[in-house]
């Protein structure tokens, strides 16, 4: 059961649970702004080995129709995917370029 991925704002004390309890998913928190370097996938060289997907610490690479799709809303730009790619088909480029 996927959790609600939207932000939550409380207005009143009575809206709070009695104890600190999570009510929403951190997927409401796009971490893409942390990034200095952006991974760019050159799909033509991709051998669909899943290595980039497997090692993403942020679950920011989705596996869609047998190919990786980098979710830039969340990718923090660590570069593990580019480093581990056996075909070097992910390139880290400066953000904003």
């Amino acid at each position: 059961m996927a959790k609600n991925r939207t932000k939550i704002e409380f207005q009143k004390l009575s809206e709070l649970p009695p104890m600190v309890q999570s009510l929403r998913s951190m997927a409401a928190n796009p971490t893409g702004s942390w990034r200095n370097l952006k991974p760019v996938l050159h799909k033509e060289n991709c051998i669909q080995c899943t290595i980039c997907w497997k090692f993403c610490p942020d679950a920011a690479i989705d596996w869609v129709d047998d190919y990786p799709v980098i979710n830039l809303d969340f990718c923090k730009g660590c570069g593990i995917c580019a480093e581990e790619c056996p075909k070097k088909c992910i390139e880290m480029v400066k953000e904003g370029k």
């Binding site: 059961m1 959790k3 709070l16 649970p17 009695p18 104890m19 600190v20 309890q21 999570s22």
Partner: peptide, 26 residues
Amino acid sequence: YRLDVNDPHTYGGLTTPDWYMEFRIK
């Protein structure tokens, strides 16, 4: 508020000064 795999929540997580006091009021 029990731990329940069918309705998963995290309990006691990091709470900022924005909310800590309200839980003490409770």
